[in-house]
């Protein structure tokens, strides 16, 4: 078995008197899609905050490729909850953001991103402003902005939470298809059980605050994920829901 891309060991975090995370341990293998699933307000996003260096854990260790993680040096490709597109930049210039920050000229960054627009279903919308795009397209643009950064890992923080139900389902299937093509290493934060089951190889279910990993589920990836009609997936989904609703049993 290959060395884990990311290892989190016994992370603990409190804000003032509020214990947010008590005991978070998980691993992500290269090319693996791992989800953290938990109720709203459980502190799921705090885990990502610690990975991108926006806040530090009180205790515990974080390893990237086996070496201690240095938040300001080791960078992940992070996608925040809402699309966080800049309304004043055209779509092409939103997707080049990470490359520009990394030091590329705007022209070079554009040249790198432009060929990917078709695959992300954004061809022809390069010169549009975000306000002209639908919610699904905005999320695809945000994901394009995330993956072009060529980081060792993608961190997705409830990427489809703000979309309507139908668009969300479409986006989940689209992401499943994209992942099966690119095999990105992904850590996904979500509170949507179906989303987690559809997309993940492994799912860590968190308790409500103070959060710890209650249970880990493995989703067999031996068939193309279509999300509906698979009894195996439906069974896992039911089991996870049961765990979320009755964490004590």
């Amino acid at each position: 078995m290959s060395r884990p891309r990311l290892e989190l060991h016994r992370l603990r975090k409190s804000f003032g008197a509020v214990d947010v995370l008590t005991d978070i341990s998980l691993t992500v293998l290269p090319g693996e899609f791992v989800s953290i699933l938990g109720p709203s307000g459980a502190g799921k996003s705090t885990i990502l905050q610690m990975l991108i260096g926006a806040t530090d854990p009180d205790m515990g260790t974080m390893l990237l490729n086996g070496a201690p993680l240095v938040p300001k040096r080791d960078r992940f490709a992070f996608m925040p909850q809402r699309d966080a597109l800049m309304p004043w930049r055209r779509i092409i210039d939103n997707t080049t953001l990470g490359l520009e920050v990394a030091g590329l000229s705007r022209e070079a960054a554009r040249a790198e991103v432009a060929p990917l627009f078709a695959e992300f279903g954004l061809a022809g919308f390069e010169q549009h402003y975000p306000a002209q795009l639908s919610g699904g397209m905005r999320q695809r643009a945000a994901l394009l902005r995330t993956v072009v950064q060529q980081r060792p890992m993608l961190l997705l923080d409830e990427p489809f939470g703000a979309l309507d139900a139908l668009t969300r389902t479409q986006m989940q299937r689209w992401l499943a298809k994209m992942w099966s093509r690119h095999h990105w290493t992904v850590l996904l934060i979500t509170h949507d059980v179906r989303e987690a089951v559809l997309l993940s190889d492994r799912i860590h279910v968190l308790s409500s605050r103070p959060a710890h990993v209650v249970h880990q589920f493995r989703v067999p990836r031996d068939h193309p994920r279509q999300g509906v009609g698979s009894p195996a997936l439906a069974a896992i989904e039911a089991e996870i829901l049961q765990t979320l609703l009755h964490p004590e049993n």
């Binding site: 260096g53 992070f78 925040p80 809402r82 953001l97 920050v101 990394a102």
Partner: peptide
């Protein structure tokens, strides 16, 4: 300024 946006840029190393 959108907090997500600042966080995103910080995560990119800005």
């Amino acid at each position: 300024t959108d907090r997500d946006l600042s966080e995103l840029l910080a995560s990119m190393g800005a």
